[in-house]
Design a protein around this nucleic acid. Structure first.
Length: 476
RNA sequence: GGCGCGGUACCCAAGUGGCCAAGGGGGGGGCCUGCAAAGCCCCUAUUCGUGGGUUCGAUUCCCACCCGCGCCUCCA
């Protein structure tokens, strides 16, 4: 396996990936605040990170992947009031939905951690920042003093001066500087609260990711990821408070990876704009594998325009890949005995695929290679002289193995559509139907033969006649 | 206003200082077929937003401009 390169937002360059500890990768992705159903934009992050973890595993790394649920914050409190249930119930409900959606998309779940289950670690971190003079207390609130951290702005490429120039936020008069941000917020009456040295309250936004990632992955962990919209202020603030906490002796995280937004009608899909396609809704209309494949047809840092036309294109493309796999399987199944795979044809494609993935997880390029493999398979099945060759079966087996590795192992897109009705008995039934129909065709009773084909098609079963015989497959 | 990203065929989308600028979708033609479907082959960008510059040579590097987008406030 070659060298993996990834784009690091911190240096604005593509860099070779070298883990902190040989053979192991520690990575963290900012999760979400579970207060509404997840939308396609969220799922892009989920799928992208899943592919990142899968590819790191292909490189032989043992991956520890942590993701948080910010299960207490202003929006959850508001949501709880609206729905008349507790904040825990809100968080639990939407976390669960999120996990179900992720599982449906074929995601290997990360190690989830929750803010409310790690409150003492968060408080301890805030306390150290206060004790060390990086933060100050005002009426039960704690603020991080940005001017105490000289490197502030190094991730987002801004300076404090620029921030002031563009400031369009109402400044809290109690803060020493407008750019200071809250580490701890005092509770208003009736709000859920945790005891702290500064009185009852809850963590500010940002601190939870610092505390949780440092607790579970230790300082200078390998990859910290999130959506591009988190670069500022979220990740910038995380760096400031974390590196201050570490006495500026070591970096917080080593590589920063950010995926691009999903847009809808030229606008970012976001809860705040209400321009949103909930993944639940989309799952009613498209098989999860199609959604996943669609999300991977574009490089992860490129903004992705959502549309049903694109989804239909992805569906057509995936169907072509699956058809080729099924045809190869049928060909090999018909053989008296399965051939040992010959990888000589497949190997160059495996290498091209690997090169694409090593190139900052370029799934768009990798998928192009998948289609090359599909063409190699179809070419062999379609050309009688080739199909007769004794070595063709072994080559097909090698190509099919490569295709499965690319699609299923690495990209996580199943080649078999999930169907409830496959069973041995069903296979036998189809075999019988095809035999009867062959008899009809031999007697030139084409109207009956065509009617069988049409009726089956209406049920989602496609019959395809060829000189080698008739095959069937399930239409998605 | 500041910072950043991008404009590649009908649509989507990779990519490179110089082999025919990947791949997918769509469209056209051919082959195969009883018909269909699937598939295969060929065609669909002498050109990469516009105008300059650097270079033997730029779509790729630099500058300006136009257009779109993101961030600067909660956001994945």
């Amino acid at each position: 396996m070659g060298e993996l390169r990834l784009y690091n937002t911190l240096t604005r360059k593509e860099e070779p990936f070298v883990p902190r500890e040989p053979g192991k990768v520690a990575m963290y992705a900012c999760g979400l605040t579970p207060q509404a159903p997840a939308h396609v934009g969220h799922m892009r992050g989920v799928v992208v990170m899943d592919v990142v973890r899968r590819w790191l595993e292909q490189h032989g790394y043992e991956v520890h992947f942590v993701q948080n649920f910010t299960d207490i914050d202003d929006k959850i409190i508001r949501r709880a009031q609206e729905e008349g249930i507790s904040t825990q119930q809100v968080a639990e409900k939407y976390s669960q939905m999120y996990i179900e959606d992720a599982l449906a998309l074929g995601v290997k779940l990360p190690h989830f951690v929750k803010v409310t289950e790690n409150m003492q670690d968060i408080i301890a971190m805030v306390k150290k920042l206060v004790d060390d003079g990086y933060a100050y207390v005002v009426d039960g609130d704690v603020y991080f003093e940005v001017s105490k951290f000289p490197e502030y702005g190094k991730l987002s490429g801004r300076t404090v001066e620029e921030l002031k120039a563009g400031a369009r936020i109402e400044v809290d008069e109690r803060k020493r500087h407008p750019e200071d941000f809250a580490l701890w917020k005092s509770a208003k009456p009736g709000e859920p609260a945790w005891d702290s040295p500064w009185g009852p309250g809850r963590p500010g936004w940002h601190i939870e990711c610092s505390a949780l990632s440092l607790k579970y992955l230790q300082p200078a962990f390998d990859i910290h990821a999130g959506g591009m919209d988190l670069i500022f202020p979220h990740h910038e603030n995380e760096i400031a408070q974390s590196e201050a906490y570490l006495n500026c002796q070591q970096p917080f995280a080593r590589y920063w990876l950010h995926w691009g937004p999903v847009r809808l009608r030229q606008e970012k899909m976001s809860k705040s704009t209400g321009v949103v396609v909930p993944i639940r809704e989309l799952r009613q209309q498209y098989e999860p594998a199609v959604i996943r494949f669609f999300l991977l047809t574009v490089h992860y840092r490129t903004p992705l325009e959502f549309s049903y036309e694109r989804l239909d294109e992805a569906k057509a493309g995936l169907e072509r890949i699956r058809t080729a796999a099924q045809r190869a399987e049928a060909f090999l199944r018909a053989l008296p005995q399965p051939p040992a795979p010959d990888d000589s044809v497949a190997q160059p494609y495996r290498e091209q695929f690997t090169e694409a993935m090593d190139n900052d997880f370029n799934t768009a390029q990798a998928i192009a290679v998948v289609f090359e493999v599909v063409r190699e398979i179809n070419h062999r099945l379609n050309t009688p002289e080739l199909a007769q060759r004794p070595e063709t079966a072994a080559e097909l087996q090698g190509l099919l193995n490569a295709l499965r590795w690319m699609m299923e192992t690495v990209l996580g897109v199943p080649l078999q559509a999930t169907t409830p009705m496959q069973s041995e008995r069903f296979e036998q039934l189809m075999g019988a139907v095809i035999a009867w129909r062959a008899e009809l065709r031999a007697r030139k009773l084409y109207d009956l033969a065509d009617r069988i084909r049409d009726d089956l098609k209406a049920m989602g079963i496609v019959l395809e006649d060829s000189p080698q015989g008739t095959t069937w497959r399930l239409a998605e």
